[in-house]
């Protein structure tokens, strides 16, 4: 990892944390929806598989160090042994897969619309399919819920994450227009 990689990874980790602290929809009544999981998708889509996954690992390190960096001010070791830990660990794979697919699709990029669709696909496959697989597996076995039930409990959150995936794709397209950045 070059010094520039270190800088990008650390700054992206900070963005993931910041997105957990700023509400997605300022006036949403009830549950504050944050964009932290979108930050994870963006890490992969923008930085690529290795650096994106590294950014997530840094966030996990911050949690382990007892810092309240997960949305809702959560942090500390309890997160790693709780029911949602699978989603946290799954973030690493999510960023990697999203970044990997973004790289694969890069070669065949054509119009903005196609690019956006491809990146949405990458975000969905990584940030939803792979992520939920990890989260559901953990929930099923750690909480002894069984795969099917864990699936149905988790799938409730997919609509929001679908919106975030598409947003992540749109954001990535715009960011790459503004600055040149390769995927690693």
């Amino acid at each position: 990892m070059t010094t520039r990689d270190i800088s990008l990874v650390a700054l992206m980790a900070a963005v993931i944390v910041a997105l957990g602290l700023v509400p997605a929809i300022p006036l949403s009544a009830g549950v504050p929806i944050t964009l932290q999981s979108m930050g994870v998708m963006l890490a992969g889509l923008i930085l690529g598989p290795k650096r994106g996954a590294a950014a997530v690992l840094v966030v996990i390190a911050l949690v382990a160090l007892g810092l309240p960096v997960l949305s809702g001010g959560r942090g500390g070791l309890g997160v790693f042994v709780g029911p949602t830990a699978g989603f946290l660990f799954g973030w690493v794979l999510a960023a990697f897969v999203a970044g990997f697919l973004a790289q694969v699709f890069e070669a065949s990029e054509k119009s903005t619309l196609v690019r956006t669709v491809q990146l949405s696909g990458a975000a969905i496959l990584g940030g939803i399919v792979v992520l939920y697989a990890c989260g559901i597996l953990w929930l099923a076995f750690f909480v002894k819920m069984g795969l099917v039930k864990a699936f149905w409990v988790s799938v409730v959150f997919t609509p929001g994450d679908l919106v975030k995936a598409i947003a992540a794709a749109l954001i990535t397209v715009q960011v790459r227009r503004a600055v040149a950045i390769e995927r690693k």
Partner: peptide, 22 residues
């Protein structure tokens, strides 16, 4: 309410900052 209006500038800034920071 715009997610893009928040995320795009935030990310552009960090990419630019990363150069000088490095």
């Amino acid at each position: 309410g715009s997610i893009l209006a928040l995320a795009v500038p935030l990310l552009v800034r960090i990419v630019v900052r990363a150069e000088t920071l490095a």
